[in-house]
Design a protein around this nucleic acid. Structure first.
Lengths: 350, 350
DNA sequence: TTGTAAGCGTTATCAC
DNA sequence: GTGATAACGCTTACAA
């Protein structure tokens, strides 16, 4: 940078003003500094900048609360990530809001705007108030990322999560593979059609099934509102009503109820092929017990790591890497991670 | 650190000597500094340390050469990672060695020992000379990681890659799912039994198949030495000899030959279920063309990112995170990544 | 509109 | 054995 300044015939401070767009510099000087930067190939040293500022990144993650074990897992992962971040001087605060409550989310965003944060990550809800608050945060120069579920507009800096249509198609393909030409009937279970991710997964699955095999049909959709008891009840009824069902695809939560039903199935009856989402205690157990076949997991560990990486880049005003969608992992009984998938604080290398 | 020094009643320089084990400090002082560090909870600021040293990390990756398109992909990914690393002052050099040539690998390691590197990552080969050279590098304080394929000893600092037994079991489970109780006969194709990863995958697959269904049997193993022409020839013969074959599991490379055979299959004959490894141009095409069903990919992108992260930690003398095995991704026709899975230099957020 | 200089938390050099 | 202190590349008063 000293070289740049000298080569441009200005002082270090002026060069700095240009580099950081601080304004109050004569056009002529700006041009000269710019070309000096070009010529000398100067690149800003972020580490030094942060050092001099005594910078500590402050990020907030807003995660839905409730009994949902997937989000509980997300929260755990976030908590552990802090351990790893100490040396990086990154501070992460976890905020809880009621699930599916757009107003609460908007209110929380507004409150966070006052907290001098560097970035916010939230599980998106399509809602105009939420969108407005996201916009407001951006205005303040706070980076905003949607996590796991996106919002419709383009005002966020980015989305970190899976493509749920692709996820649904993948499930469809695996179901088709499990039938391999034989006829079958697939029962779809979701939380609610108004949840964007559920609807997209269903749509993807339906597409693939329709294209893959004329011998596969769909049973009437069950909406279980992600509640165990409700799923339990409706599923029992559906299975009793239609003995031709050969497979179940559960795109949402509330799977503890589903698994209970499977456990109660008469042992002499061949159980349906089952695919569901997110690896949590009960889905893991069901896989181990041969009650279900496949769990498609969106790997919150990776999502959070990626989100933190992006937030840092954005906070550093660095060019941000191109889109990178999370590829879900497909678990069967045989490739489950070790039961305590916890990152330890210090330890041996792998 | 100034606080530590003051609190211990010594100078900054002495405190520094203790922190960095530079020696030449009275026992008494050491103790006092240590306890001061403890009390004040001092943590070394790596960024500042690196700044003052003008540190640039230098890492070497040794990647097998040859026609193998998987390693070509690894090399591409590494090349691209450099782009993202500029601001971090990390320098990555890619070294090529003949594939499966232990002596060449050992020689290369020896040469690298003279290059004042901070770390080396290599695709392991089980060989005593290689092990000796790894040990020698460690003695010099150079971090050593095995990548994709491990070595037997424990002298390396870590292994980044998949667990191939688990990978094989996963393939086995998916094959079982594709048969769903119906009888079947699986034809295993590998490069060579002496390649550890191939052998382990085969072993895992066999285990799961044996446990999962009494109605599934194995056809005699084909060893194709990862060569397209050889795989082509042997596979044609095997399929002709045994019409009962319902599935193929290819654990190694040389899959272009395999795909050619599938293309030539008579259209009226139902093709076998096929699972193979690593997403490269021809496997991707085969998936899209419905010639095969599943590609299990070990995601070199993630492996390299993880490896670079570990190397940095090791070079910084920081505590290294606990083991984290790479979970392979299972691709079907429907969840393939965009064709140009290339990270652009600068760009929009996802 | 421009310039100077004191930090930020380290490492490394040199003198005692 | 120990202690000062000039870098490292940046930000940020403060002065001119």
């Amino acid at each position: 940078m000293s070289d740049v300044a000298r080569s441009a015939g200005v002082s270090y401070a002026t060069a700095d003003r240009v580099v950081n767009d601080r304004g109050g510099v004569a056009d002529k000087s700006v041009r000269r500094v710019r070309s000096a930067i070009e010529q000398l190939g100067y690149v800003r040293n972020v580490a030094a900048a942060n050092l001099s500022q005594g910078r500590t990144y402050r990020f907030a993650f807003i995660i839905p609360e409730g009994s949902n074990s997937f989000f509980a897992r997300v929260r755990t992962v976030l908590g552990e990530s802090r351990v790893r971040l100490i040396p990086e001087q990154i501070e992460v605060q976890i905020e809880g809001v009621a699930a599916f409550d757009a107003e609460a989310l908007a209110a929380r965003l507004r409150r966070l705007a006052a907290e001098s944060l560097d970035g916010v990550a939230l599980v998106g809800i399509d809602d105009s108030h939420v969108n407005a608050e996201i916009e407001a945060l951006q205005q303040q120069g706070i980076a905003v990322l949607t996590l796991i579920s996106d919002v419709i507009g383009e005002q966020r800096n980015g989305y970190v999560g899976v493509d749920n249509i692709v996820v649904g198609r993948t499930a469809g393909r695996l179901l088709a593979l499990a039938h391999r030409g034989r006829p079958g009937r697939i029962l779809p279970v979701i939380g609610s059609l108004s949840a964007r991710d559920h609807a997209e997964r269903l749509q993807g699955m339906t597409q693939t099934i329709a294209a893959a095999s004329p011998d596969l049909s769909l049973a009437p959709l069950i909406e279980g509102r992600d509640r165990h008891a409700l799923v339990d009840e409706k599923l029992r009824a559906a299975l009793a009503a239609d003995p031709a069902i050969t497979a179940i695809y559960s795109a949402g939560a509330g799977n503890a109820g589903l698994i209970r039903v499977l456990e109660d199935l008469p042992p002499d009856m061949p159980r349906p092929t089952v695919i569901l989402h997110e690896l949590v205690a009960h889905s893991r157990h069901a896989l181990e017990a041969d009650l279900i076949d496949i769990v498609i997991d969106q790997r919150p560990e990776d999502e959070i790591e990626l989100a933190l990486g992006y937030l840092r880049q954005l906070a550093d005003r660095r060019p941000v890497p191109a889109p990178e969608r999370i590829v879900p992992v497909i678990y069967v009984k045989d490739n489950l991670p070790p039961a305590n998938g916890v990152l330890s604080e210090k330890g041996e290398m792998p």
